[in-house]
């Protein structure tokens, strides 16, 4: 599989080695009177993966949208490489839970979308698009429309599109949450392999505790309403994170720990 083709993979992400630093500095998100997230502080180092877990309604997706520049924090600020986020910064890729593909564009056109927005030359767009599609294993499906693809293939397209901008930061909004368990598992390890080829900064919001531990260098547990940072856990698991790691006892222990943190009763927590 082309994922192992180092030369190709490296051309995709080469300019910004290691990605950007992300600073979430005292961010509070408010919608009218409703406070969704309160005084969140997280530092993400270049090339680090930080997972964010927590019960539904703890504001993790809202937080991610603030980092993406889709929402403006009511208090505090988000900085990417020291620059305050006001609208999506250049070099930020995002993968959406429900894929966010244009139903009227083919796989090819969906992947090429960010490149076209940047006004690249036609030949360059075509070459890069081909590379990306090959990398996510969708060769042969270039002309298919999203509705003709399985959920897993749609999310591969979404991933390729997010990678097209050679991101410094990859924002993952429960990327495998809408997929069946088996497909999600396969995609997880593929994404991890891609990351090992060229590590970049990743903020990974998820429902799944397994996923949070598997991906994260650190796991941030959000809790309560409004959501606050309840605990930050260092995940000292070896790289590359593959199936063997996921079967290890250390992994199981960490998963237990995160599980009990997420599930423990908590004042002010409804249901």
């Amino acid at each position: 599989m082309s994922l192992h083709d180092r030369r190709k993979a490296s051309t995709l992400t080469s300019p910004e080695r290691g990605g950007a630093a992300v600073t979430i500095d005292g961010v509070t998100m408010r919608f009218g009177d409703r406070v969704v997230a309160s005084d969140i502080r997280v530092e993400v180092a270049p090339g680090e993966i930080v997972s964010v877990v927590g019960p539904s309604g703890c504001g993790k997706t809202t937080l991610l949208r603030a980092v993406a520049g889709l929402l403006t924090p009511s208090e505090g600020s988000v900085r990417v490489d020291g620059e305050i986020v006001d609208g999506t910064p250049d070099g930020v890729g995002m993968v959406f839970q429900h894929f966010g593909l244009f139903p009227w564009k083919t796989v090819e056109a969906n992947v090429a979308y960010p490149l076209r927005l940047r006004g690249l030359q036609k030949e360059e767009i075509a070459a890069r698009t081909r590379e990306l599609i090959e990398m996510v294993g969708l060769s042969g499906f270039e002309k298919s429309y999203p509705h003709q693809l399985s959920g897993g293939m749609q999310q591969r397209t979404g991933l390729a599109r997010a990678l097209a901008v050679r991101p410094r930061v990859l924002l993952m909004d429960e990327p495998f949450g809408a997929l069946d368990a088996q497909t999600a598992e396969v995609l997880r390890f593929e994404l991890l392999r891609m990351w090992e080829e060229r590590p970049i900064t990743m903020l990974f919001v998820t429902h799944s505790i397994d996923e949070a531990v598997l991906f994260g260098d650190r796991v941030v547990v959000l809790k309560g309403r409004p959501g606050r940072v309840h605990e930050v856990i260092d995940v000292a698991l070896p790289h590359p994170r593959d199936r063997a790691v996921a079967r290890s006892e250390a992994f199981a222990a960490l998963r237990e720990r995160v599980w009990s943190l997420v599930m423990s009763p908590d004042a002010g927590q409804a249901g």
């Binding site: 993406a68 520049g69 889709l70 609208g87 999506t88 250049d90 930020v92 890729g93 995002m94 959406f96 966010g100 244009f102 979308y113 960010p114 927005l117 901008v165």
Partner: peptide, 9 residues
Amino acid sequence: LLEVARVHR
């Protein structure tokens, strides 16, 4: 999709 467009500036 409007969000996708915004994320891609």
